[in-house]
Computed example of a mutant assay.
Amino acid sequence: MEKVIEIKNLTKVFKNGRGITDINLDIHRGEIFGFLGPNGSGKTTTMKIMTGLMKPDSGDVKILGHSVLEDFEKAMEKVGCIIETAESYPYLTAYENLKQFSRYYKNVDDDRINEVLELTGIIKYKNEKPRKFSLGMKQRLGIAAAILSKPEVIILDEPLNGLDVEGMLDMRNLIKSLAERENTTFFISSHLIHDVELTCTHIGILYNGKLLNVDTTRNILNNYASLENYFVSEVETNGKV
């Protein structure tokens, strides 16, 4: 299988001692990888390094064969992402925001903008400004922007943050559909165990800045009653609880 994301010996430790240590991970095309861990475990730090927002102390990340550190533009050329919060221009409408973002890409026309608005469930709000949106609506708009260019890799930091039950179901179905129909590769961080279990094909547990284990969701659920049981077992096995 084709490696799409390669993380090698990635380390970033802050002055307070928190961060990530020696992360190694391979993610293949079409996988929906869930980066599961409690708040403060290092998920966002890893994703910031993956997207060039932060430099590691050591190690490297390659996306589609290109180093984020040495060939950033090539590495990010076919990547869509949301890190921490979905940002938008509050004085522009949802449609105008996506129109503005479309200027960064080739072959993104009005049809594609309307398509992603439909896919994320905000087509009827296309002429409203996001300053009036709820957190969940802003998140939907951010995801629309992330998938606008039909990226091969999508990196989402807590993508279900702020969504109601219907929104969570919509986003879960959208992620699965893109992975299945377009072979899109997803890297998703979350602390919501149940949603990771229902969404992701592969799961890695990050705890206190260390990657404890990586396995397929199918294997995990064949051996444990739930992902929660697996998580507790892995943490206890590694002597952290």
Rank of each mutant, 00 (worst) to 15 (best):
M1C: 05
M1A: 13
M1H: 06
K3C: 07
V4R: 12
I7L: 04
N9Y: 01
N9L: 05
K12F: 04
N16M: 00
R18M: 15
G19H: 08
T21W: 12
T21Q: 14
D26I: 05
F33G: 04
G37D: 11
P38L: 12
N39L: 09
N39P: 09
N39Y: 09
G40D: 13
G42M: 10
K48H: 02
M50T: 05
M50I: 08
T51E: 07
L53E: 11
K55I: 10
G59Q: 04
G59A: 08
G59D: 05
D60H: 01
L69S: 12
L69M: 13
D71M: 03
E73A: 08
M76K: 05
E77F: 07
G80R: 10
I83W: 11
A86C: 12
Y89K: 11
L92S: 10
L98G: 09
K99Q: 13
K99E: 15
K99F: 12
F101R: 06
F101P: 04
Y104T: 06
Y105H: 07
K106D: 14
K106R: 13
N107H: 06
V108W: 09
D111N: 12
I113K: 04
E115W: 11
V116I: 08
E118W: 03
E118S: 10
T120H: 04
T120R: 03
I123V: 08
I123L: 14
K129R: 14
R131L: 09
R131A: 09
K132I: 03
L135P: 02
M137Q: 02
R140Y: 06
A146Y: 10
A146F: 08
I147Y: 08
S149R: 13
K150Q: 12
E152Q: 15
E158M: 11
P159Q: 04
D164C: 02
L169G: 00
L169R: 14
L178E: 10
L178Q: 09
R181N: 11
E182G: 01
F187W: 07
I188D: 09
S189I: 03
S189V: 10
H191C: 13
H191A: 11
I193W: 05
I203P: 04
G204F: 06
I205P: 00
N208T: 07
N208E: 14
K210M: 03
L211D: 06
T216Q: 07
T216C: 00
T217G: 01
R218V: 09
A225I: 11
A225R: 12
Y230I: 06
S233Y: 15
S233Q: 11
S233H: 15
S233L: 02
E234Q: 15
V235K: 09
V241H: 05
V241K: 14
